[in-house]
């Protein structure tokens, strides 16, 4: 049985990352920007797992999986803080267009 080559996974993950980056640049709703950041993090996770499968030793393979676990944990913390910031932003001023947010500068 022929398995899927490593480069196929890497290309898929590169595409996911590029789509996420485009979303961060062109979107103006902060929630959707967050979703695009999640897309990019997942692209990184896919790369970790694809490389993990191609490692020679069990220890190296498990190391890739452990890193994905840490990325998921960091993403969870990031979402909690980010959504808290969005809530505060919305409470201070009703409209939440990201182009008009300059609270940090004042």
């Amino acid at each position: 049985m022929e398995s899927v080559p490593l480069s196929a996974y890497l290309t898929l993950s590169a595409f996911l990352f590029a789509v996420g980056a485009v979303g961060v640049v062109i979107k103006r709703n902060p929630i959707v920007i967050f979703m695009c950041i999640e897309l990019m993090l997942n692209a990184a996770n896919l790369t970790f797992l694809a490389f993990a499968k191609h490692q020679p030793t069990l220890q190296a393979q498990v190391a890739g999986h452990v890193f994905v676990l840490f990325v998921i944990g960091v993403a969870a913390a990031e979402v909690a803080v980010g959504l808290g910031i969005i809530t505060v932003m919305f409470r201070l001023r009703e409209n939440i267009d990201i182009d008009q947010v300059n609270l940090m500068r004042e």
Binding site: L10, A14, V25, H54
Partner: peptide, 24 residues
């Protein structure tokens, strides 16, 4: 950004294209 990033990442992916999958 999209095209640059995609091209960069895929060029790196092609470097490792020949890696044989290890016995999982």
């Amino acid at each position: 950004i999209a095209l640059g990033m995609f091209a960069l990442l895929v060029s790196q992916a092609l470097v490792v294209a020949g890696t044989p999958p290890a016995q999982a």
